[in-house]
Design a protein around this nucleic acid. Structure first.
Lengths: 178, 178
DNA sequence: GCCAACCTTTACGTTAACGGCAACGTGAGG
DNA sequence: CCTCACGTTGCCGTTAACGTAAAGGTTGGC
């Protein structure tokens, strides 16, 4: 949380390439996001160089997270960000009003938006968890078979196996047979 | 489960359009998935019409789930499905071999694949949860403000209340006059 | 046997999300 | 002042994931 105090404007503004490296994006991507309206010019140098502040970085990280981790389209991300923009606008309105009632309304609206975001994310999580459960079931099934196999016949010729491992995770690496 | 060629072949095979409507996909999409190798011809009618069985439907539902819910690319989905195909192949090999050791290896491999799938999903879930947490934090913050506001004056004349809110949010972008 | 509805392959069009030039401006150091 | 790495705005290219239209073959009811 940064409150951009006017007094100590210790805000180190970054140029696009620095931002790109910091976040693991390309400059093209960043410009593209701006072009789509996901990001505002932040500021420009005298010679029209883009300059980014901490807020922009956070915003970009947010976008990247939604894109990579959540698999949202840039369009959907735009929606989510619009919500956040509305939230920001509300903050201003919040400060500018003197009506407690209005403030309550604004806050309630903000909360509603955020809760919608959360719900969207939660739905996605739930579906993913269902998939995990299914996969887990298959795994359990396989392990059951494996256990069953442990109790089964032991090939008289095939003593090569020390055969004493339950469910071991590593060391299967040998891709040898071919 | 069904082993594709057992006695009661009461398998009602569906044509592409029926499948499409059932699953909420387009015929083009289904053909495209086949083209990508995500789906095999299942069967063809005398006049080369595609015919789909229950397995195909399930597979398509799986694909759709991964695509819509999880946001995986068709390429990633292909990987996951390949794993499953490998698993199926392994089942056959499993039955055809008489070496206990080999069976063990096959099972271990299958388990490994599934665990990789699960891990992939879990990673995604984790990131999503992080995002939910962040959003939750914002929400809590907002609610705190709201509560604070509740405790404040209801008197419209009271101005001392506004003095308590001095959390300046964002700077004024300084993009200059338009 | 005929026709409409459905299917086939082939192939070009489209949108999203960038990549990668070209042609030119910028800015900090020597 | 010059240089040179970095930046800017076009603008065209590319890949993924389909849409869409053309030119036919197939099915099933009448």
């Amino acid at each position: 949380m940064k409150t951009t105090t006017e007094g100590a404007a210790e805000e180190r503004l970054l140029r696009i390439n620095e931002v790109a490296e910091e976040l693991g994006l390309t400059t093209r991507t960043i410009r593209y996001y701006e072009e789509l309206g996901l990001l505002r010019p932040a500021a420009r140098s005298e010679g029209s160089y883009r300059l980014f502040d901490a807020d922009d970085l956070e915003r970009l990280r947010f976008i990247k997270g939604l894109r990579d981790d959540a698999g949202f389209s840039l369009n959907e991300i735009g929606q989510l960000l619009e919500d956040e923009v509305a939230r920001a606008r509300n903050r201003e309105r919040f400060r500018e009003t003197d009506s407690v009632e209005e403030r309550r309304v604004i806050l309630a609206d903000a909360v509603k938006r955020i809760e919608r975001q959360i719900l969207t994310l939660r739905r996605k999580i739930e579906r993913l968890e269902t998939m995990v459960d299914e996969a887990d079931e298959r795994r359990a099934h396989l392990l059951a078979h494996a256990a069953e196999l442990e109790g089964e016949t032991i090939d008289p010729h095939d003593r090569s196996a020390s055969a004493r491992f339950r469910s071991e995770p590593a060391r299967v690496s040998s891709r040898g047979a071919r």
